[in-house]
Simulated assay, not measured.
Amino acid sequence: MSAPTPPTAELHLHVEGTIEAELLVRLADRDGLPLPSRDPAVLRERYEHFADLQAFLDVYYANLAVLRTEEDFHELATGYLDRARAAGVRRAEVFFDPQTHVGRGVPLEAVIRGLSSAFAAAEETHGVSAALILCFLRDLGPEAAEEILRAALPLREHFIGVGLDSAEVGYPPSLFTRVYAMAASEGLHRVAHAGEEGGPDYVREALDLLHVARVDHGIRAMEDPELVARLRAERIPLTVCPLSNVYLRAVDALPDHPLPRMLDQGLVATVNSDDPAYFGGYVDENYRAVARDLGLDRARLAQLARNSVDAAFAPAEDKRRWHGEIAEWTARAG
C-alpha cells in the first residue's frame, strides 16, 4: 500500500505541463489538429526519456499547439484541479507562460481568462485555493518580458505574481532586473527559477537583483555553503521538484537527491511536481517517491508540507487552517 501523503501547498507547477495525453488528443480532435499519434499510450512514451531540459522543451512546446481558445485553457486548468484535489493540495500557486501562446496568435485575454475562470471557482468546486503566477520565458529576453507584463497589466486582478522559467543557462536573472522592478511597483509577488541548470550564482542573482520571495528549484545552492547559510538565515523557500530533477538529469537518481541534506541544514524546502504530465507524477506521487527512495519519515513529510504552507502567498487565516489539517494528519499517521 502506498504511504499516505500530507495536505500540502503546491508552489511549483506549470499549468501547461499538466496536459495529459488524453486531453491532448481530445483538444486536437476538436480543432482537427495533427499529432504524432492519436494513441495516448504512444504519446506518453515520448515523455519517458529526455536527454536534457531542451529535449523536454521541444516536446512540451509542440504539444501546446492544441491550446487555442478560452475554453481550452479553462479545460486545462480544470483538469489540473481535478488531480490536485485527489493529491491533497490545499493551495496551488500555478505558473503559466503567456508568451508561448501569444506567439502562436492566441489572444492574451483568452489565456488569462480561461485559466482564471477555473481557478477563481476552485475553492468552491474543488476545495483548492488557487492563484496564477505569470512567467517570463527567459530565452525570449528581457524586452519581451517587459512587453508581456505591460500587456497583461490590464488583467492584473487575475494573477498574483511573476516568475522566470525556461532554459536557465545563458539567461541569468540579472537580465531581468528591470522587469522585476516593474512587477514590484505593481505589488506583484516575485519568484524565479534558479539553481537547477544554473549554478549558485544564479540563485544569488535572483535574491540580490530580482528580490524574489522564493527560489524555484534552487538545488544547486547546496554547492555553496555561504549561500546555504544565507538561505537558512533569511528563511528563503525553495520549491524543489524531485521527480522532475531526475527526469531532466539535474540529479542522476532520486536516492542522490539533496532534499534530505536541505532539510538537515534547516532550509525551507518544499516538494512540488513541476510538469507532472511529463515527469512521473503529481505532488502526492513526489511525496511518496521521496518517502520511499530518500527514507523521509512522516515527521519529515509533515515538515515539507508545513514549509509549503509557510511559503505560500495566501492569507494568514487560510494558512492557520491548513497547518491545523497537517497537524491532524500527523497525529493520525502517528
Rank of each mutant, 00 (worst) to 15 (best):
F279M: 04
D318T: 15
L35Q: 01
R321V: 12
Y247S: 05
G105H: 04
I160G: 14
V102I: 02
D252I: 09
A77F: 00
D208C: 06
G280Y: 11
F119C: 05
L188T: 01
D97W: 10
E22K: 06
L57V: 00
E186D: 13
N307Q: 04
L35G: 00
L43K: 01
R220A: 04
F136Y: 10
L209S: 03
L210Y: 12
H189Y: 13
R321W: 11
R156F: 10
A299Q: 15
D284R: 13
L155Y: 08
I133W: 02
H211F: 07
V309I: 15
D201H: 15
A51G: 10
F159H: 00
A305I: 03
F176H: 11
G127E: 07
E124N: 05
L132V: 11
T270C: 09
A65T: 10
E48L: 12
H257V: 07
R113Q: 04
P40N: 03
L64C: 01
L263K: 12
D29H: 14
R232E: 13
I160D: 14
E205S: 08
P98V: 00
Y282I: 03
P260F: 01
P255L: 12
V212L: 06
A86F: 01
A316G: 13
R178T: 07
P255F: 14
P237K: 03
D256P: 01
F136V: 14
V111W: 00
G187F: 13
H126Y: 14
A118E: 05
R230D: 10
L108M: 09
V309C: 08
D264I: 05
H12N: 06
I133M: 05
V42A: 15
G187T: 13
P4G: 02
G195L: 02
R230V: 08
T330R: 14
V246W: 06
